[in-house]
Computed example of a mutant assay.
Amino acid sequence: MAALLVTAFNQKKRIVALWLLALLFLAVAVSSRPAIGYETSLHEFLEITGLGFVFVAIGGRLWSILYIGTQKNRALVTTGPYSMTRNPLYFFSLTGIFGIGLMFGSLLLAFALAAVCCGVFLYTARREAAYLHGLFGEAYDGYAARTPMLVPDPRLYCGPAEVTFSPAALATTFFDSLFLIALLPLFEGLEAAQAAGYLTPLFLIP
């Protein structure tokens, strides 16, 4: 019964932490440049690959919200992406965050961003798991026992015949995802400003 006393994790804390990390990243991006030259084919490859990761992240987040919609903490969703991982939204967010680092042109920054945000997501996921155990009891325990917390296992996929979704939740997730795409023209602008001499990078990032 003690688990029933666990309260839902305050998502505002996660959001604030991620926004602080985003601001820190933007500060690093403005004051630096990737060690891999902008003019090299490797930089172009990293940029295109990163953009691909971002599109996968957006598609995955939209796919996930189709299933969870407004049912979070109201019903135990175990189908679709939630049959492969208990936290598909966090997984696809990490995919996009890794892609952002690649779009900038830095493998080090991509892995560092993903690692720090992974820590935030895992902490949140563990707090949420304790709360869901209190809500759904043995049903959640069985689901948690067979389903990974974060990294999907495609072999577990199970899809329902049909899905009822929330258009409002889908729209909100879509517009939130536009921030990821907006970073590409930002990086291109920084690159142009540095090439024109309007912005001098203080250090290089491998």
Rank of each mutant, 00 (worst) to 15 (best):
Q194P: 13
R146D: 13
P185S: 06
Q11F: 13
I205W: 00
K12E: 01
I65S: 09
Y123T: 10
G50E: 01
L178T: 14
A35I: 01
S166W: 08
W63E: 08
F175C: 10
V120G: 01
L135G: 10
A144N: 01
A115V: 09
A115P: 05
L109M: 14
E44Q: 09
G37F: 08
Y140W: 02
A114G: 02
E138H: 07
F203C: 07
V54Y: 00
A2P: 14
I48R: 02
R127Q: 15
T200V: 13
T79A: 15
G119V: 01
L42T: 12
L4Y: 09
I100S: 07
I48A: 10
L178A: 12
A27F: 07
G142E: 15
G80W: 04
A195L: 04
L186R: 10
P154R: 02
D176P: 13
L62P: 06
F136W: 05
G105L: 04
R146H: 06
I97D: 01
A22Y: 09
L21Q: 04
F136N: 05
Q71D: 15
A196N: 09
S83A: 15
F203H: 06
I58F: 01
I68Q: 03
T95Y: 02
P206R: 07
V30H: 07
L102K: 00
T70I: 06
T78Y: 04
G137N: 02
L202G: 12
T40D: 13
G142S: 08
L170A: 14
S93T: 10
G119D: 13
A169I: 09
L132D: 03
C118D: 13
A2D: 15
T164F: 14
T172H: 15
L20V: 12
A112R: 01
G159Y: 02
V151N: 13
G69E: 02
T172L: 15
Q71F: 14
I68C: 07
T200L: 10
E162D: 15
S83Q: 07
R86I: 05
L132G: 01
V54S: 00
L51R: 00
I15L: 12
F9R: 12
E162K: 02
A112F: 06
T49S: 10
Q71I: 02
L108G: 14
E188C: 09
P88C: 11
A169E: 12
T79F: 09
T147I: 06
K13W: 11
F179Y: 14
I48P: 01
I36L: 09
D176Y: 12
V6H: 04
L184I: 01
S31W: 03
M84N: 08
C117R: 03
S64H: 04
E162H: 13
E162F: 12
A8Y: 02
A193W: 13
Y38E: 11
C158G: 08
A145N: 07
I97F: 08
L178D: 06
K13V: 15
